[in-house]
Design a protein around this nucleic acid. Structure first.
Length: 271
DNA sequence: CTTTTGACCTGACAGC
DNA sequence: TGCTGTCAGGTCAAAA
């Protein structure tokens, strides 16, 4: 669920229902997320108007007058706008109740997500301060990758998943982007040519844009409460396709483990 | 500094 | 049916 495209989808999905609304109440049912939900959150957030909803990396920021509510969906989290009276499920850890009789409900079975209150400039906060460029921005260039990769022996797939290098490229899109770029996932980051990095940049952007377009499909029934994706799974070229034929050359897709994460690639198309 | 490893959590699923 | 092991879209601290 929470790939960058899914977080972007969530951002666009909740904005029309939250921006301009006043927070009536914050209900914390389970504070033990990746970081403890701050005790003062209900007190400081109640009564504030949400002026905007933005995304940075896989973080969402709800902008209020005296601070920001920062939300991360972790591996299994989701955020939905629901009638405030909707029955509470097992992993519905937090509600932000709005003056529209709706609530923004945070659900997260694995509790790897986070809900925090940030005062001051949110981009100076430790969680956001050291992040790399947005992949869909002008700052994400082949030259920047080449410079960053100089002398690095780490595998290019793990390099791409390093949020100091570029944000938002998760396990699925790292594999998909490298396939599209024709770059082998185990190749050392410092041993990838500038021409190949140019293809990597274009591929990451293509794949993320395509996935956001699919997220738009999810967006339609987002508020209704479905939220399950599965749309872009049909377009995956390598992820989860071990043993199946490459859509380009027919060779069997291979799987390996890098840093305890599965990587998928085509042994004939990627070098 | 870079790189690797383990930790955080629950649920789904395969195999016995 | 239950048990065990493995895996899952993320991130960070600590160790090497």
């Amino acid at each position: 669920m929470p790939e960058l495209p899914e977080v972007e989808t969530t951002c666009r999905g909740i904005a029309p229902h939250t921006v301009g609304r006043r927070i009536c109440q914050v209900i914390v049912r389970e504070a033990r997320l990746r970081h403890l939900v701050p005790r003062e959150l209900p007190r400081v957030a109640t009564g504030q108007v949400i002026h905007g909803v933005t995304r940075r990396a896989k973080y969402l920021l709800l902008d209020c007058a005296t601070g920001h509510i920062l939300i991360h969906l972790g591996m299994s989290g989701n955020l939905r706008v629901l009638p405030a009276t909707t029955a509470v499920g097992k992993h519905d850890h937090l509600d932000i109740v709005l003056d529209s009789d709706q609530c923004l409900r945070f659900t997260d079975p694995r509790r790897f997500g986070a809900v925090l209150w940030l005062e001051g400039d949110p981009y100076q906060h430790a969680l956001l301060r050291d992040l790399g460029p947005e992949p869909l921005s002008d700052a994400f260039t082949a030259q920047a990758l080449v410079a960053r990769a100089q002398g690095r022996k780490v595998a290019v797939k793990q390099f791409l998943m390093d949020s100091h290098v570029v944000v938002g490229v998760g396990n699925i899109y790292a594999s998909e982007s490298l396939f599209r770029a024709g770059v082998h996932p185990t190749r050392a980051a410092g041993n990838v040519s500038p021409a190949r990095y140019a293809r990597v940049v274009a591929s990451v952007q293509y794949v993320l844009h395509a996935a956001i377009a699919q997220g738009g499909t999810t967006l339609r029934d987002f508020v209704g409460g479905d939220g399950q994706p599965g749309y872009f799974s049909q377009q995956l070229c390598v992820y989860g396709r071990a043993g199946e034929p490459c859509r380009t050359c027919g060779a069997a897709i291979k799987q390996l483990r890098q840093g305890q994460r599965s990587t998928y690639y085509c042994p004939r198309c990627q070098h």
